[in-house]
Amino acid sequence: MAGSDSGLKEIHLNLPATSSEVAALEPGTIVYLTGLVYTARERVYQKVLTEGADLPVDLRGISNVNFHCSPAAAADGKGGYTIGGVTATASFRFSKWMPEWLDLTGTRIVIGKGGMPQKDYERVLAPRGAIYLTTVGYGTGALLGRGIKRVRDVFWLEELGLAQAMWLFEVEKFGPFIVDSDLQGQSLFARHGEQINQGLGKLYEGLSPPALHRYGETDDREDELM
């Protein structure tokens, strides 16, 4: 659909994704998903990995896709939930939990906003057979909301709140997403970032620097700012 006029490669996957399907994904490919996806972010990671809580459901048996997201959702008064928009949140904040989390859950696809540092792909995700999909935009909340057909379950809702709870979503043609990392640990974001960096010097040419520097421009606390 969305990729039709872009010249970009487009793939539809049924979940849980197999190892060979994950291995075939290349950075820059557009992906749509059908199956079961779960959400987990900092409070779920803390609860399970730091506080030692048991997983509320056997993820290995049902879903290998971790979505860094919190939905705009509300109870519908009939025991279910209305899902409005769905958008990812920035994943770099969660990278410290990834090694243990992937080992514990067998997650093979991580979806979020903005990717993770390439080192995480090389050292953490790729060796565990996992790749990263980024959402598009960002803020395709309505399109992703459409892709969620049903809330299968939600855990720790009262304790962690709507945004941090663990949701299980049944999804259909859920996307689009863009493959950021592959099983070689390559990163689409890193590749584009490097290319843009090459032009930055020229951009600043002729613009004299301000008189007062800022903390943060150097890590040396003994430096003066002027």
Partner: peptide, 20 residues
């Protein structure tokens, strides 16, 4: 292109364009 589709979907479904 995807963002424009997303705004159309939000209009049609009456749902927030972005979940954040």
């Amino acid at each position: 292109h995807t963002m424009v589709s997303n705004w159309d979907a939000a209009d049609e479904d009456q749902r927030p364009m972005c979940a954040d």
